[in-house]
């Protein structure tokens, strides 16, 4: 049967057209968010040895915490995840600061969801996950584990305190 002879029910045809339009709209929305608004998903920043990442003196995660890059404007935060806590469990940055999180795990897979922001990624042992956000409002922002990691998974959290 040639294409000319093919019969398509009007409802089926309309649904196909609608589906294609929706796919195009969704793809456009994702492209706008990713490339127009700068909302990126995390990619592996670098690789580390989970067995030595907390003890190697050259590893930033041997002494995790906040590093000031530009006073009041730019900060790097190194966070080490382990069952069932984040090190450090409390981070303080000033409001308006651009903060980049470098997070890795020394044991099992964890998650890192920084509430009320778009920072949300998996923490895989041996891999460093990195995302940046800007805190425009002072307050407390919890970061919580979103990957089940054992008995005390639900108690695994920390807090970013954004100071005015």
């Amino acid at each position: 049967m040639s294409a000319k002879q093919m019969h398509i029910d009007p409802f089926e045809r309309n649904w196909i057209v609608f589906s294609v339009i929706m796919l195009v709209l969704f793809a456009t929305a994702v492209a706008v968010a990713a490339f127009g608004m700068g909302i990126q998903v995390p990619s592996p920043e670098t690789r580390v040895d989970p067995k030595t990442v907390a003890s190697d003196p050259n590893s930033p995660w041997a002494n995790p915490g906040v590093r000031e890059v530009v006073a009041g404007k730019k900060y790097d935060v190194y966070i080490l995840a382990k069952t069932w806590q984040y090190l450090p469990a409390e981070v303080k940055v000033p409001v308006g600061a651009k903060v980049t999180f470098y997070v890795t795990s020394m044991d099992v897979q964890h998650g890192f969801k920084l509430q009320d922001t778009n920072v949300n990624f998996q923490i895989v042992p041996g891999q460093v996950s990195k995302l940046t956000t800007t805190f425009t409002k002072p307050g407390s922002y919890n970061y919580i584990c979103t990957e089940y990691c054992g008995a005390a998974h639900a108690a695994m959290y920390g807090v970013v305190i954004v100071e005015p």
Binding site: G38, I39, P42, T133, T136
Partner: peptide, 12 residues
């Protein structure tokens, strides 16, 4: 959800 995502800002 999309508007909430946009309102939370960039992650670059």
């Amino acid at each position: 959800i999309y508007m909430i995502l946009l309102s939370r800002g960039a992650t670059l």
